[in-house]
Amino acid sequence: MKKIALLLSLLLALSCFSGFALAEDVELTVFNWFDYIDPATIEMFEEETGISVQYVNFTTNEEMYTKLEAGAGSYDVIFPSEYMIERMVKHDMLAELDLSAMPNFANIMDSLKNPSYDPGNAHSVPYMWGTLGYVYNTEMIPEELTSWSALFDEKYAGQILMMNSMRDTIGLALKYLGYSMNTRDEAELNAAKDLLVEQKQKHIEAGYLLDEIKDKMIGGEAAIGVVYSGDAQYAIDGNPILKYVIPEEGSNIWVDGMCVPKDSKHIAEAQQFIDFMCREDVAAMNFDYIRYCSPIQSVADNLSPEEAAMPALNPSNEVAASCEYFNDVEDAMSLYENVWMEVRLAR
């Protein structure tokens, strides 16, 4: 009898261990934008949950989508922007999230809950949000800039860095012309194309870059650079003579969400990760590190007066209202592609 009990308890202890080992075996693959998380938060997550995280990077939504669609590698948590979330939901690529398993979801500010791109947050939880605009060097350009028109002004020829991102660049041209950033109208898109081609042919732009723009702006390599608000803040922190503008014609407001691909084998742990990122202290760490707008209400409430005065960190309500989310333009995407290649190939 005793022997059996001993055996049983031994078995129990063993199974305990094996259970433990299993939990430790889970490795989440997190697929995020380059330089878009405080690495310390990942270590915290690993320590607190015993789940190990493999962290990999992408640089554009399209690149992320291409890799996911091609089935290259399996990912458990991804960080697409809102228009990409919309497209991936349409293509049934995202798992439905169980919000009741994520108590920290309550920390998200109300204005970002239940968004048009993902009703009821069925597939995504906001991670960061921000705007598109440009920074300019106030020593090179003493006058105050408020409009997208500066990007097409021959006065600043050869000093403007544009963004090598299809939707953003065509979108800002559309916005400058008074159209929607989500237009599917060929004539409007052609007008945007003509504007960008002319800008190129008159040598007003000094190049199309992406991640490099913020460093070039800090180094004084150009007078104006189109950037996302987070990069703007990074540049301003690096060189205070830079100023961020969300142009008066309106711009793009975007949300990068956290989602779980449908074929993830660790959906529960992935949700645990998402919930962890919504914890107030973790979100504050990420805000301090990335300097994009945090969707966590308490982080926004606790901005320092200087931070609150920065349009990149804290856009005013009027400005935010003049901005548009990107929508998935579906079949009109091929129009965008043609316009984009014509702009890139123009000489």
Binding site: T59, E62, E63, T66, L345
Partner: peptide, 11 residues
Amino acid sequence: MIEEFFITVNN
């Protein structure tokens, strides 16, 4: 151009 088609344009 090839990189652009794969990465930026997603074609």
